[in-house]
Structures are given as C-alpha cells and as structure tokens.
C-alpha cells in the first residue's frame, strides 16, 4: 500500500494536469521541478487536452504483479498534441487493430487495486481510439 504516493499524483492521473514553462513556453508532462527544455524553474499549471496519437505500442502477455487479471492488454507511448509523450494503456479497443499514428483520447479508468480486492482502487489515465462516443 502506497497511499500518499497515489494521493499526490491524483491531479495528473485524473486530469492530465501538467505544466507550462514560464521562460520558454514548453509544455511539460508529467510535471517536473526543472523544465526539460530550457532548465528554468517549472511551476505554472497547464491542463493538457488529452488528445494525441499512438507513437508506439505493444501487448503485455506477461503482466507484473497486480496487473495479472487484466492481461493481455495494450500499452503505448502516446504523443500528446501539445508535444510530450506519455506511457499509458490503450482501452476500449474492441476489434480495432492498433496502428502507429492512430488518434486517441484520454479516459479515466481503474489502473489496479493496491492491497488486494479490499485495498485501494487506483485510477488514472488510459487512452482510447477517438470517435467512440461520450465518456
């Protein structure tokens, strides 16, 4: 159980809240204390749109502890339209084949349970193909 760690990350996990650098205007996700583009102090909040495209993907057959019940599942590098790339699962794929360049959008889903079935539910972002209707 890592309750404080997950609690600390909830804004980023639930709403893709990142940062914009006040010096170079670089968009930053996940948030950092130092801008990766110019080295300035990063501190201005910036909400990301949640729109992006698949940069790369793979299918997890052999899941790590805590994720076994979800396997197989697809994980991807998603390039957000504002620039940064995030690592996330793809969801709601149905029969749709995944391709590099495919447009996707962020949704909030359960990532896993921390501490077994009676433990804490950890929610976070996943991405689904665009055009699948309301959240």
């Amino acid at each position: 159980m890592e309750i404080p760690r997950h609690w600390r990350l909830k804004k980023q996990r639930y709403a893709l809240i990142g940062e914009v650098c006040p010096y170079c205007d670089g968009k930053i996700f996940p948030p950092r204390d130092v801008c990766p583009h110019c080295g300035g102090e990063a501190r201005n909040v910036y909400p990301f749109s949640g729109k992006g495209t698949v940069y790369s993907y793979t299918v997890m057959q052999d899941a790590p502890a805590g994720y076994e019940s979800q396997a197989p599942y697809t994980v991807a590098l998603v390039k957000l339209e504002e620039g940064p790339v995030v690592t996330a699962q793809l969801t709601d794929l149905g029969e749709q084949a995944v391709e590099i360049g495919m447009p996707v959008e962020m949704v909030t889903r359960k990532l896993r349970e921390d501490g077994g079935a009676k433990g804490m539910l950890i929610y976070g972002y996943k991405f689904r193909p665009v055009g699948l209707g309301p959240h």
Binding site: Y55, S56, Y57, T58, M60, D62, A63, P64, G66, Y67, Q70, Y73, V75, A76, L77, T87, A88, Q89, I100, L111, R112, I122, G124
Partner: peptide, 18 residues
C-alpha cells in the same frame, strides 16, 4: 511508467516497434 502496468520487456518492445 510502472503504474501503467508496463514491464521492462514492454518498454523495450515500444522502442523496437518504433
């Protein structure tokens, strides 16, 4: 990375596919 359910193999798979 890890909290998204990714393994070390999968990170390398993402690089290889790209």
């Amino acid at each position: 990375e890890r909290d998204q359910g990714i393994s070390f193999v999968a990170l390398n798979a993402l690089i290889m596919r790209r």
